[in-house]
């Protein structure tokens, strides 16, 4: 296993599935391969489509809203990273990055830029429609049809 991977890109947004990926990377993969880990959190660019058919507000209100979204999501991402740091000792040596964009596109672009040789993500989960539990960020899930053709390196899905 050693030196099998040099640079692992761990994609997480703090959901239950993503936590499985975190555990896999920091307790097994990083240890076994000695690879460098970069933690990536993507802010869905489609937040700007969330204002729906709102036409009454002034542009300043729209700008204020997106400013708030950016600030709020940054805070939430920071909290998430601190959670990872407090759980896994191995995470201290990892890099943390965040980018805005389409999820699949951003993951693959970052992987290419950093020269990663493995991308780890959480398993696909069925979103329950009728639940009172509210998850962070947008509900939308990444599609395999979009992600797979863009991949620059192997993709590992945490079980």
């Amino acid at each position: 296993m050693e030196n099998m991977f040099k640079h692992i890109l761990l994609c997480t947004h703090g959901s239950d599935g993503a936590r499985k990926a975190e555990a896999l990377v920091f307790t097994q993969l990083a240890e076994a391969t000695g690879a460098k880990v970069t933690v990536l959190t993507v802010l869905d660019k489609d937040w700007r489509l969330m204002t729906g058919d709102d036409w009454l507000n002034s542009s300043k209100t729209h700008a204020d809203f997106l400013d708030h979204v950016e600030e709020q999501v940054s805070e939430e991402i920071a909290d998430d990273w601190n959670r990872i740091l407090s759980i896994y000792a191995k995470a201290r040596s990892a890099d943390f990055v965040q980018h805005t964009g389409g999820i699949a596109e951003t993951i693959t672009t970052v992987a290419r830029q950093l020269g990663c040789d493995l991308i780890v993500i959480g398993p696909y989960r069925k979103t329950k429609r009728l639940t009172l539990k509210m998850e962070k960020g947008l509900r939308d899930r990444m599609k395999n049809e979009v992600l797979h053709p863009l991949l620059p390196c192997p993709l590992m899905i945490a079980p």
Binding site: D54, W55, N57, T61, D64, E76, K136
Partner: peptide, 19 residues
């Protein structure tokens, strides 16, 4: 939605709450 967009920054809503 117009009101939500206008009020969210004022009350510092969380991302999930806004969405």
């Amino acid at each position: 939605v117009s009101a939500t967009v206008a009020v969210a920054p004022v009350v510092k809503a969380k991302s999930s709450e806004m969405a």
